[in-house]
Amino acid sequence: MAVIKVGIADLNVAVKPDTITTLGLGSCVGVTFYDSSKKIAGLAHVMLPSTELSKAAVLNKAKFADSALPELLRRMVELGAIPRRIQAKMAGGAQMFNFKDPSGQKSIGDRNIEACKVALRKLGIPLVAEDVGGNYGRTIELFTETGILEVRAISKEIKHI
């Protein structure tokens, strides 16, 4: 069994018996996809809500909610996942610093959460569980055997969603 690590603004897939994890979700959102019949999982560490925010000459699809989630779905389908069987879970989107935006705009964490939910609706993938918001970072690990998403945070109880 291998533990597949996903970095910031990165995504990857895993197949039973492997697990897939990402560390240090602050305002970023970790979105997981899971096909329970094929035991195929995917994880995207989404850093920003929209590709419209990209200033790079070459787009990193994994960085943005609107491009990461379709790419994650594509990679899972390549491994044999059936789109109608895929369910999503997500964690993160915290407001790590307590300051007010003078423009009145939502925090980047809130915007990431919202953008991920919009992308999921567009893909027709149901969001079945979430642990989002707050003011603390998280580490998540998805177990391909069961589809359970473990959410860990300093000074918090481990959650299984």
Rank of each mutant, 00 (worst) to 15 (best):
86 I>V: 15
63 K>G: 03
85 R>Y: 12
101 D>N: 15
72 L>Y: 10
68 A>C: 00
66 D>C: 00
83 P>R: 01
114 E>T: 14
102 P>F: 06
120 L>M: 07
110 D>E: 14
66 D>P: 05
110 D>Q: 14
97 F>H: 09
89 K>M: 14
118 V>R: 09
83 P>V: 05
120 L>I: 05
93 G>T: 02
63 K>E: 13
91 A>V: 10
66 D>A: 01
118 V>T: 13
100 K>Y: 11
92 G>V: 09
111 R>Q: 15
94 A>H: 07
98 N>S: 13
96 M>C: 01
91 A>L: 04
105 Q>V: 06
64 F>H: 04
73 L>R: 12
89 K>N: 11
87 Q>S: 08
59 L>D: 09
82 I>C: 04
56 A>Q: 11
99 F>M: 12
84 R>D: 13
104 G>M: 03
80 G>A: 11
91 A>R: 03
64 F>D: 02
60 N>C: 11
92 G>C: 03
85 R>C: 13
91 A>S: 14
78 E>P: 00
69 L>C: 05
116 C>S: 10
86 I>K: 05
119 A>R: 08
107 S>K: 13
78 E>S: 14
110 D>F: 10
71 E>I: 00
121 R>Q: 14
57 A>Y: 02
99 F>C: 07
109 G>D: 10
64 F>P: 01
85 R>S: 13
94 A>M: 02
89 K>S: 12
99 F>E: 13
117 K>S: 09
65 A>E: 08
110 D>W: 01
90 M>Q: 09
83 P>Q: 00
73 L>K: 14
96 M>G: 11
108 I>S: 15
95 Q>L: 03
81 A>V: 02
84 R>Q: 15
70 P>W: 12
100 K>G: 14
76 M>I: 00
96 M>N: 03
100 K>V: 15
78 E>W: 03
111 R>I: 00
